[in-house]
Write a protein that binds this DNA or RNA. Sequence first.
DNA 1: TTGAAAGCGCTAACAC
DNA 2: GTGTTAGCGCTTTCAA
Lengths: 334, 334
Amino acid sequence: MAVTLKEVAELAGVSVRTVSNVVNEFHHVAPETRARVQTAIDALGYRPNAAARSLRTGRTGLLALVVPALDQPYFAELARAVVRHATAAGYTVVLDQTDADRDRELDLLADQPRRTMFDGLILNPLTLTSADIPARPTRPIVLLGERAIANSADHVHIDNVAAARVATQHLISRGRKHVAVIGSQDIPSGQSARLRLQGTMLALAEAGLTAHPDLMRPSNSYTRQAGYQAMLDILDLGHPVDAVFCFNDTMAIGALRALRERSVRVPEDVAVVGFDDIEEGQFSSPSLTTIRPDKDAIARIAVERLVARISGRGGGGEEIEVGFDLVERQSTQG
Amino acid sequence: MAVTLKEVAELAGVSVRTVSNVVNEFHHVAPETRARVQTAIDALGYRPNAAARSLRTGRTGLLALVVPALDQPYFAELARAVVRHATAAGYTVVLDQTDADRDRELDLLADQPRRTMFDGLILNPLTLTSADIPARPTRPIVLLGERAIANSADHVHIDNVAAARVATQHLISRGRKHVAVIGSQDIPSGQSARLRLQGTMLALAEAGLTAHPDLMRPSNSYTRQAGYQAMLDILDLGHPVDAVFCFNDTMAIGALRALRERSVRVPEDVAVVGFDDIEEGQFSSPSLTTIRPDKDAIARIAVERLVARISGRGGGGEEIEVGFDLVERQSTQG
DNA sequence: TTGAAAGCGCTAACAC
DNA sequence: GTGTTAGCGCTTTCAA
């Protein structure tokens, strides 16, 4: 069926060892020999068998990327960057979605049978806590997003407290006094949300402002629909509001829609800030002011760390912080 | 290092054959034996070696999905659906992006060394024509989007002519006379674009309307930015326009933004229709009327066909047509 | 610089 | 119902 090393070797009149050397660009193969082997390879259309190679070397050349859902723009953009960097590093990406399902996330961590076929794992968990991460995983792991405390996985993240503080300060600097917050979470795993809330409260306190309970809407689902509903709820409660900070952009997009439906002007009546800087926010009406985490750096560093660990370099368990910007657009320029 | 079948067999006091039977839920293993083996498996933390299994069976359990770019919402939503269906069928998805690069698309088709590790390929080509698809590919291929003429790959698509016709008829039924079209392509591979243009012209002709050249803006890049620019261009040319049909939703989102910047009211002054029904269009201002291809069916059928072919069932080379709807939203309700 | 051969871990044909 | 064993295609140690 498929052409094997042996067949190539026979045609070229050399041993399989030599063919292998040519294929892997090893050692010093005599130019003449190399040419003869290459001719045989081309003539037969030989392709190395990846499974056999993996069995022998213990490497698959595959990295697994596990995200909650690909249709969330932030994760789609992240996945794009991870695939790009992995490809550049000679790896292929295996993709999995957890739908924020705890069992799915645990399964993936546990190296389930079908999943063993990768050399390392990049995981953006939603439901896991650091207690769930095995102390001695069979393969290197890089965690994104949530803070992981003291374990063997590397962790790439931004300073969520500082970012939320900057976002809130921006609203305050525009003279806003009644800042609503959408996206806090009271579940144990909602670490990012907790940190963003912390940064928000810090900025408010520094400005001598307080957060009215009617203006704080929790949300465990970071979707447009959730942001839309949360914004409507806030408006319905009737408490004065002149600014909204949403913990991600998709919720902010939903909030913009709710405000428009209620004929509330943005940014004149209510200023809106999001988080993530998804491309959609550049084209919303009005365009969206947001926190821009350096997604490309997150992806690049995650791949770099993983490849290093796979190659036996680097210890693991490191915390790597990536930068962020505030991007000012129309939704706060009033 | 890793625990092997043999070690499990020794601990359980049986042969590897029996352990293999237990692991693969084969044959009739005596309940008592099964229990003893299972105990040994658990005690040792045994995990089957996927590479060895693949080498033996010739199957990897991996499907490759190749799309132009994951950060385009349509492809992200499609990828999500493909991953979901593949997982349900017991397969894992390997993801690749071509960035609409012809060489990358050809590489993937050619089973490049690193890429051989999948059992089948789902490909949404942008630059390839049917001539590029090998007549006898080493693995089953399902093509999405572009029409493939007479080759061994299955092809899942919607009726682009009919869909574009429905979209245009909808605009005409709203009394619009000056329909602009954004997204035609004059490149050889722009098959979908060509069919959509055909459907549009058909509808216009049926209504006794003609398409003014100033209202036809080609675009090879289906992005928000491209739609934005194309819309500005149309407005700048000064020809009367009261409707726009964009060949995808992201361009329509860009067009909405351009119209808003120029203070053109949607739908009162200009009605807008998109294509794809990405979630973003439900939350744009105004929300976007669009053609909704049955994405879930596309993904489901693509996976089904591929799995069937991998299992030796089904011949390949089939054309499978999937349905579509017109979804009416605010952008045409004036 | 090249050849011969062992063996990675598993499945499945063949025995019993 | 279970044991024995060949061999999938490759990399790599040991020899020459």
